[in-house]
């Protein structure tokens, strides 16, 4: 099938912008997984629940989508703190926390079906005019267009991921989180207050779900099964991007969605999600080879400083 350059460019652009939305969803998961050691699949459900609350407040109370964050952000923060408190109280190991969060993930779908029904819920008609009309890019790209919800995803992804990466890299708390991730007893021996820090990190990760939920509600119709569609891309983006690395997850999500969209131009769209897992399999298969190359380079130059090492100066 012949595909015009414009169609390809538009498809890749749409994929990149959808990837930004997935990057927003993946942000909280990669932080909790990488820094707290909890693969919290329930985080993806929290995004959907936040989206439904946004939908309800916009369609029934006439709130502006941004204003709904006044409700969803504190609510998600509390959910994040409570879940971390629960994991700490249970002294949950990797398997226990995985089972728990996956159980909550399934339960959340049922809860959403009960509260909002299994029907598609769209708030497109209730959105302000500025969020509904497509915007053409300036010349010479004026044949390409983006929608305001896509731009919103882009802005939110850049702001949230930028803020998270900067905080982890340059603030005292970020430093403490990194130390805690590497060796909690050592971090505590340094004076890092690990328990309250873990609660705060979990709360902030969940808070990001409220923002992602708002972006989801603005962009697409809601249905309780959405997390099942998201989970593949989100989890693979976290793994490919490096656990605990918000920017890595965002970049991976953008690349994956561009690949998926491009695939749909030439091949059957129902196989598009297989592209994501295919990339993960290729990545995992290449790991031993990359390790061998890395070790060779390290062996040949034993005193060379690794670029991955973080310097404070």
């Amino acid at each position: 099938m012949d595909v015009s350059t414009t169609a390809l460019a538009q498809t890749l652009l749409n994929g990149a912008l959808l990837g930004c939305l997935y990057g927003c969803i993946a942000l909280g998961l990669t932080i909790k997984w990488g820094h707290l050691g909890i693969a919290d699949f329930f985080h993806i459900s929290v995004v959907l629940l936040a989206a439904y609350i946004t939908f309800t407040l916009v369609t029934e109370a006439g709130w502006h989508p941004f204003a709904t964050l006044l409700v969803t952000a504190p609510a998600c923060f509390v959910v994040g703190v409570a879940s971390q408190w629960l994991f700490t109280r249970l002294d949950a190991d990797d398997t226990t926390s995985l089972l728990l969060t996956f159980g909550l993930f399934i339960v959340a779908e049922g809860v959403a079906s009960q509260l909002w029904s299994a029907d598609l819920k769209s708030m497109r008609r209730d959105l302000p005019d500025g969020l509904r009309e497509a915007i053409h890019l300036p010349a010479p790209l004026d044949r390409l267009a983006v929608t305001p919800p896509d731009l919103l995803s882009l802005v939110l992804a850049v702001v949230m991921v930028g803020l998270a990466s900067w905080s982890l890299r340059f603030t005292r708390s970020g430093r403490a989180v990194q130390a805690m991730r590497q060796d909690q007893p050592i971090a505590e021996a340094f004076g890092v207050r690990a328990a309250p820090l873990a609660l705060a990190v979990s709360g902030l990760a969940a808070l990001s779900a409220s923002v992602a939920g708002m972006a989801v509600a603005v962009k697409m119709p809601l249905q309780p099964q959405l997390p099942l569609h998201w989970i593949g891309v989100v989890v693979v983006a976290c793994l490919l991007g490096g656990l605990g690395r918000p920017l890595g997850a965002l970049v991976a999500a953008v690349v994956l969605m561009m690949l998926q969209n491009a695939w749909s131009l030439w091949f059957a769209p129902q196989w598009a999600s297989a592209v994501t897992y295919g990339v993960l399999v290729l990545y995992l298969a290449a790991q031993p080879l990359s390790r061998v190359i890395r070790e060779r380079l390290t062996h040949e130059r034993p005193t060379r400083e690794r670029p991955a090492v973080r310097s404070l100066a």
């Binding site: 005292r172 340094f190 090492v309 404070l312």
Partner: peptide, 26 residues
């Protein structure tokens, strides 16, 4: 010895200084 592997030598010591008896700036 249990150094924090993703920090360099200075980072290991500075992190300890940051959270110790006096909460000093970066």
């Amino acid at each position: 010895p249990r150094p924090l592997g993703s920090f360099d030598v200075l980072g290991n010591v500075a992190t300890a200084a940051m959270f110790g008896r006096d909460r000093v700036s970066r």
